[in-house]
């Protein structure tokens, strides 16, 4: 079953003088449980596409169904609810809150979910355990290494058991070993059934996915299955 259906998606940025076409008629589907990598050089529109898919931004025109629901018909609050319940985000710069413990950082999406304290605690600890950071729950984010911070961010993305995880250049700020750990984690999550959309400009990172969409100038220029899928646990071959 398709979790994402996109047809002829367009996004035009306009500042009143100049219009820039960021997405120029993008169409594709994503199946549940799929691990998709979106690649392309800087400015090709891959981040814009991810933001629209993640309901953080609205397309100018086209058709987008998420989990069977037409995104155009969603109000801002409904979109917020979908982001909260169905989606997880991992950013290049981690985006952890300073002066806040890792536990509370991971808890952040649950704060907007209306669960009991007990349930929240259980979910946070289980998310932290799955990224191997249970013992650092009470540390502050600045007390963690870059790799640990990104793992904490992944724990935050999966704490709500989302259907899909969007990862925007998750290894961009990490050394190769930490990057490998993060990718391994994403592959494990995919094995557990999470749909994953990974945005990257690195070819070898994209080869961790099952399928690659390559973009150029706002258009999809390549959409293919990865023949020799690499596994992060086997080490990175550059």
């Amino acid at each position: 079953m398709n979790i994402i259906e996109v047809k002829d998606l367009r996004k035009v940025y306009s500042n009143g003088y100049v219009s820039t076409v960021a997405l120029d008629g993008v169409s594709f589907d994503v199946k549940e449980g799929e691990f998709l990598a979106i690649v392309g050089s800087s400015g090709c529109g891959k981040s814009t596409l991810m933001h629209i898919l993640g309901l953080l931004d609205r397309p100018t025109s086209g058709f987008y169904n998420f989990g069977g629901k037409n995104v155009f018909e969603m109000s801002d609050d409904e979109a917020a609810r979908v982001r909260n319940k169905k989606m997880g985000f991992v950013f290049q710069s981690f985006n952890l809150l300073p002066r806040t413990s890792i536990f509370n950082n991971v808890k952040l999406p649950l704060v907007y979910g209306g669960l009991s304290d007990e349930k929240e605690k259980e979910m946070v600890l289980s998310a932290l355990e799955s990224v191997g950071l249970k013992d650092k729950a009470n540390n502050f984010s600045n007390q963690l290494s870059g790799g640990e911070q990104q793992r904490a961010a992944i724990a935050r993305a999966l704490v709500n058991h989302p259907a899909i995880i969007f990862a925007d250049e998750p290894t961009g700020n990490l050394d190769s070993l930490s990057g490998q750990n993060v990718l391994e984690l994403l592959q494990d999550l995919n094995d557990d059934g999470h749909t994953i959309i990974l945005v990257t400009h690195e070819k070898y990172t994209s080869e961790m996915a099952q399928r690659i969409i390559e973009m150029k100038d706002g258009k999809i220029v390549l959409d293919e299955k990865v023949e020799n899928r690499k596994l992060a646990k086997n080490g990175l071959i550059k």
Binding site: D77, A80, R81, R83, Y112, R156
Partner: peptide, 16 residues
């Protein structure tokens, strides 16, 4: 600003 962006990304509504 960044914190607000993050909160919105993880599901905070305007009213939140």
């Amino acid at each position: 600003t960044k914190e607000i962006g993050l909160r919105k990304a993880v599901g905070a509504r305007r009213s939140d």
